[in-house]
Structures are given as structure tokens and as C-alpha cells.
């Protein structure tokens, strides 16, 4: 039997995390979560995720960007090179509140994530996106 993929969700909205947990576990994924960027970076080595679902605004306005920076800037954080192939799916409602065009910037030098989805996200579309990211 295939190993279950492990999804690590970083979001401070505990109700949303509960929903996504239910949806993903029902679809056969393992699930873990953290409610802040600081907590995520503290525990990620214990989680060893296959994919990260990441919010942006948590304990501060750019908390999610800080996680991306630490997980993708291998010069500053060489210990995180092991996460190079772990997909980051940014899921946030703040795209339009900022000057950034997340969907256009995803995958760029400015925003080195693998995909972006703006909340609200339909559970079915989230499952499709996760499957796509895990199998590419």
C-alpha cells in the first residue's frame, strides 16, 4: 500500500483547519497543523510533510512570507534544503489587499511557492490542486 501523503497546514483560523483536516483525512491524507509561522518552523522537522498549505497573515502581516523565506532561501537557511521538493500551496484571502499579485508571482523569485489559491476555496478544488502538486 502506498504511504499516505502528509499535509501540513499552517493557518491561525482553527475552524478552517478543522474543515480542511476533515476533508483531507476523508480523502486518505495524513494531516498536521500549526497555528503560526513560529510554531510551523519549530515543529516542521517533526512533521516531515509532503506538502504545506500556508496562510499569510497570522501572528503578523507577513508571517507566511517568513515561512516561505526560511524554507526556500537555502543560502541563509541551508538546513532547510531538505524541503526543497516539498510543495508549498499558499492559501490566503489577502492577495487583493496587498500590492502583490500572488497568482502571477507564484513560482517566481519574488514568491517561490508552487501554487496559490485565494480563499474561499472549494474543497473539491483543493483536493485536485493537492493531488496535482503531489504527483508532478
Amino acid at each position: 500500500m502506498d504511504k499516505k501523503a502528509r499535509i501540513f497546514m499552517v493557518d491561525d483560523d482553527t475552524d478552517l483547519v478543522d474543515i480542511v483536516r476533515s476533508v483531507l483525512e476523508a480523502a486518505g491524507y495524513e494531516f498536521a497543523s500549526a497555528s503560526s509561522a513560529t510554531e510551523a518552523l519549530d515543529i516542521i522537522d517533526n512533521i516531515t510533510p509532503d506538502l504545506i498549505i500556508l496562510d499569510v497573515m497570522m501572528e503578523d502581516l507577513v508571517a507566511g512570507f517568513r515561512v516561505v523565506n526560511q524554507l526556500r532561501n537555502f543560502e541563509l537557511f541551508p538546513q532547510n534544503k531538505k524541503y526543497e521538493n516539498v510543495s508549498i500551496l499558499m492559501m490566503t484571502s489577502i492577495q487583493q489587499q496587498t500590492r502583490m499579485k500572488f497568482s502571477g508571482d507564484a513560482g517566481s523569485r519574488l514568491l517561490p511557492i508552487d501554487a496559490f489559491m485565494e480563499k474561499p476555496v472549494k474543497p473539491r478544488l483543493l483536493l485536485e490542486k493537492i493531488a496535482e502538486l503531489l504527483h508532478r
Partner: peptide, 23 residues
Amino acid sequence: RRPAPDDPSIDGVTTPEYRLINH
């Protein structure tokens, strides 16, 4: 792939007006 923390579009979200409207 690396982020560019000095990009003005990231600086823009940290101004007081943007903080207020973002929240």
C-alpha cells in the same frame, strides 16, 4: 528560487495604511 525581501511590493504591505486595510 529565492524571495527578494527588498522588493517594494513586500514593503508596501507593511505601511500603517496597508496594515489597517489588510486587517
